[in-house]
């Protein structure tokens, strides 16, 4: 792999639809993901929901290539997932991992990896998008929790992803930061990026989702349009989950 990958060189590698085929992930005796089949289409924002331990994060990591499936495979536009695909994917973690540098340097780290034409302008554009332009010189890890997650978001957007995975990114944030992040995510989606968002928050799901995937015990129980899911979930687990009951 060359040190810097020019973005233009990647335009020819189609990433979507993203598919999971018979995807299983087993650690020791425990099956965390059990024979998942699903297809993620580019046009919609997909929100992954389900109780704790359902396997949402693991599925996300499998789709992003952070974990190697025990069985089955991930397909991008019909081709097995490769580094070329992964370069156009990005993931925002629940806990932002920021480098021990300034805000600007955190962005530069990624921009240098992907070598866009005008790094400086790109950096300022991204910082503007997440409202951190005036904090460019500050130490990244001294930002507030919300600012840190916004910076992390700007950093994944620097990759110009075709597919953006978000793993409960707003779980620890206040409403204002949550709203800002949701807005950016919506804009990114409108600009053509596939968004896969894990959330525990039904209200957030209703705000963002075009389609909902409901998981439990490592299996996909429902994949349906958001309006149908929130109005009339078909499985009992989903009904219990939305009603705030413990799901078994």
């Amino acid at each position: 792999m060359s040190e810097r990958i020019a973005l233009s060189a990647l335009e020819d590698t189609p990433s979507l639809p993203l598919q999971a085929c018979e995807l299983s992930y087993v650690v020791g005796e425990r099956t965390l993901i059990n024979a998942v089949d699903l297809t993620l289409l580019p046009e919609v924002i997909t929100v992954l929901m389900g109780p704790n331990g359902a396997g949402k994060s693991v599925l996300l990591q499998l789709l992003h290539g952070l974990r190697v499936p025990t069985r089955g495979q991930v397909l991008c536009a019909g081709q097995p997932l490769t580094t070329a695909h992964r370069l156009r994917q990005a993931m925002l973690f629940q806990q932002p991992v920021l480098l021990r540098r300034s805000v600007a340097a955190n962005l530069d780290f990624v921009l240098k990896l992907r070598a866009p034409e005008d790094r400086h302008a790109e950096r300022n554009r991204l910082l503007g998008d997440v409202g951190l332009l005036d904090k460019a010189r500050q130490p990244a890890r001294r930002l507030s929790g919300g600012e840190q997650q916004r910076l992390a978001l700007a950093r994944v957007l620097a990759v110009r992803p075709r597919v953006l995975f978000l793993d409960e990114p707003t779980a620890n944030l206040d409403p204002a930061s949550t709203a800002l992040i949701e807005n950016v995510v919506r804009r990114v989606h409108q600009a053509g990026t596939k968004v896969v968002f894990v959330s525990h928050d039904a209200a957030q799901g209703q705000r963002l989702a075009d389609e909902v995937i409901f998981m439990n015990h490592g299996e996909v129980l429902e994949q349906t349009a958001a309006v149908h899911f929130f109005d009339a979930p078909t499985t009992r687990s989903a009904r219990d989950y939305l009603a705030g009951k413990l799901v078994f």
């Binding site: 040190e3 990005a90 973690f93 990624v110």
Partner: peptide
């Protein structure tokens, strides 16, 4: 580690970034 994996950071850049940080 997870961040570097996610961003497909090449090994020598990981080493440089870790040493610098």
């Amino acid at each position: 580690h997870a961040l570097f994996q996610s961003l497909c950071v090449p090994a020598h850049r990981r080493v440089a970034a870790l040493l610098w940080d």
